[in-house]
Amino acid sequence: MSTNHLPPPKLIPQFCFSTVALRVSRSIDDTITPQLNALLPQSKYFAGSSRSPLCTQPRQISPSSCENFKTKVLFPYWQARADVLNYCASVATSPDPDDPELVLRQVESERAKERIVDERSDPYSGCFFSKEARTEMLASTVRQERSVEGIIRMRTWKLVGERCGEDGRDWETALDEWRKASEKR
């Protein structure tokens, strides 16, 4: 099991406005098959020095290894990403005094009030589309990231279920139960 994952980022508002930074590393999910393979004893997964797989079917991982992977690696990683998205969602709904385009939007808005609207000669002259505030763009990005996160977690949980044995829970239930158990510790 790899433990060389990046530490959680320092959560400051500027972090959220970096689209690249907001797409927090998904290295656990992106490498789930090798992560799960690492939980298998080498003698069970590879035969001889050729290191060819013994079978084409994925082997079941021991229940204790699976549980340890979920509680020590997967769920904490998912929680860290959820914390980032929750923090950035709160930034998106807060006032943004450092918005570099605030003055520009205010000037555009004032100009729009002074425009002469003649919809007979130009049916679009009454339309004014102000530039979106960066907090509005951030809110949209957070919504999109949460949607992607759900899809990725569903895919990862399916692979974990195939390799560890289905336990009848969906990923949301399993993560909630882990959170509750973690709070009691």
Rank of each mutant, 00 (worst) to 15 (best):
S130C: 05
K70E: 10
W178N: 05
S62D: 15
T19M: 05
L175H: 12
F128V: 12
R51G: 00
V117H: 01
K10A: 11
C127Y: 15
P63W: 04
L138N: 02
L159G: 08
R143V: 04
P123V: 02
D98G: 12
K72N: 11
V20R: 14
I28E: 14
T3F: 14
V73A: 07
L138P: 00
T31E: 02
K131I: 10
T33L: 10
K70S: 12
R115G: 03
K158M: 14
M154G: 09
F75M: 01
A112H: 11
T31Q: 15
R185V: 04
P95G: 10
L159F: 03
S94I: 05
T71D: 10
E110I: 12
S25G: 05
F17R: 02
P100S: 09
G150L: 09
D167Q: 14
R153C: 03
D118E: 01
P123Q: 09
F129W: 10
S43V: 08
R111I: 12
P34I: 07
G168T: 05
W157Y: 00
Y45E: 13
Q144C: 09
D167Y: 10
W171Q: 07
A92E: 04
K184T: 14
Q14H: 09
S109Y: 14
L138K: 01
R179Y: 05
S140F: 13
D170Y: 00
A82Y: 03
R153Q: 03
S90G: 14
R120M: 11
Y77G: 13
D170I: 09
L159R: 11
E177K: 07
Q57I: 07
Q79E: 02
L6P: 08
S49P: 10
R134C: 02
R169C: 03
R179F: 00
I28Y: 14
K158Y: 09
R51P: 00
F128Q: 06
E101C: 08
L11T: 06
M1E: 15
V160L: 02
P123M: 06
V107K: 08
A38M: 02
T156K: 04
T19D: 12
R111C: 08
D98H: 15
R105A: 08
R81G: 08
T71E: 05
P41S: 04
T173G: 04
T173I: 09
R185H: 15
A89H: 06
S62R: 01
L11G: 01
R163K: 04
R23C: 07
R153I: 05
A92S: 13
R153M: 13
S49A: 07
W178R: 05
P63F: 02
S25T: 08
S90T: 15
K113Y: 09
R26C: 03
E136P: 13
E183Q: 13
L39P: 01
S94V: 07
R185C: 03
T93L: 10
A133P: 12
N37E: 00
S125C: 05
T156Y: 11
A174I: 13
E101N: 10
W178I: 02
N68C: 08
L54N: 12
G161V: 01
S43Y: 11
S27W: 11
D98T: 15
S64W: 11
R153T: 07
K70L: 10
P41A: 09
V91E: 06
E132H: 04
R163G: 09
I152Q: 15
F69G: 00
E162C: 11
S182Y: 06
V24E: 14
F17Y: 06
V91F: 06
G126N: 00
K70M: 10
G48K: 13
S2V: 06
R105M: 07
E183Y: 03
T173D: 13
